[in-house]
Simulated scan of single mutants.
Amino acid sequence: MKSKKIMHDIFQNLEIGIGEVSKLTGVSQRQLRYWETKGYIKPISDDQSGVRRYNLATLYLIVFIKEQLDEGFTLSAAFEHSKDIRLKSRIVHQFFRETFDDVKVTDSTKGYGEIDLGEFQAEDGSMHHFKGVVDEKGQYVKMDG
């Protein structure tokens, strides 16, 4: 899918200056530079004029860390929590990478649908069909069969 690659390239290559990042997130430029010295964030460019630029992935990380700080976590704890979230996100992304073809929209006005997760065999040998569902009851899994 060409659009998927384009969006990935935009996500990785779009550069946002430190001033704009500071304005968007409420994290001062001084704090951002401090986070860099601690190794929590890394600019994608720091040209000879000293202008730092960040990609969208780093912007998301900055927002996450700021949110954790606002909730009372220390900077190091916020960063450690971000590593856990990023790992879980990669696992979920990998799991669902090809499943968009297996999503059935059941109510487009309310955003309800089902994700077909396929068949599996239970310990007793019986076959079941497994689906993830989002509907008026919330989000849950269901088995048919």
Rank of each mutant, 00 (worst) to 15 (best):
residue 28 S to D: 13
residue 30 R to P: 01
residue 30 R to A: 10
residue 30 R to I: 09
residue 33 R to Q: 10
residue 33 R to H: 07
residue 35 W to E: 05
residue 37 T to E: 08
residue 38 K to N: 14
residue 38 K to R: 12
residue 40 Y to Q: 11
residue 42 K to L: 06
residue 44 I to E: 04
residue 44 I to R: 06
residue 44 I to D: 05
residue 47 D to Q: 02
residue 48 Q to L: 13
residue 48 Q to H: 11
residue 50 G to T: 09
residue 50 G to W: 13
residue 50 G to C: 13
residue 51 V to T: 15
residue 51 V to I: 15
residue 52 R to W: 07
residue 53 R to L: 09
residue 53 R to S: 10
residue 53 R to H: 11
residue 54 Y to M: 14
residue 54 Y to F: 15
residue 54 Y to L: 08
residue 55 N to A: 03
residue 55 N to S: 06
residue 57 A to Y: 07
residue 58 T to Q: 14
residue 59 L to A: 03
residue 61 L to F: 01
residue 62 I to E: 04
residue 62 I to Y: 02
residue 64 F to C: 07
residue 67 E to A: 08
residue 68 Q to S: 10
residue 70 D to C: 04
residue 70 D to M: 12
residue 70 D to I: 10
residue 71 E to V: 03
residue 71 E to K: 13
residue 72 G to D: 06
residue 74 T to D: 15
residue 78 A to V: 02
residue 78 A to Y: 09
residue 79 F to D: 05
residue 80 E to V: 03
residue 81 H to W: 01
residue 82 S to L: 08
residue 84 D to P: 09
residue 85 I to M: 13
residue 86 R to T: 09
residue 86 R to I: 13
residue 87 L to W: 11
residue 90 R to G: 04
residue 90 R to P: 01
residue 91 I to S: 03
residue 92 V to M: 15
residue 92 V to G: 08
residue 93 H to F: 11
residue 93 H to K: 12
residue 95 F to D: 05
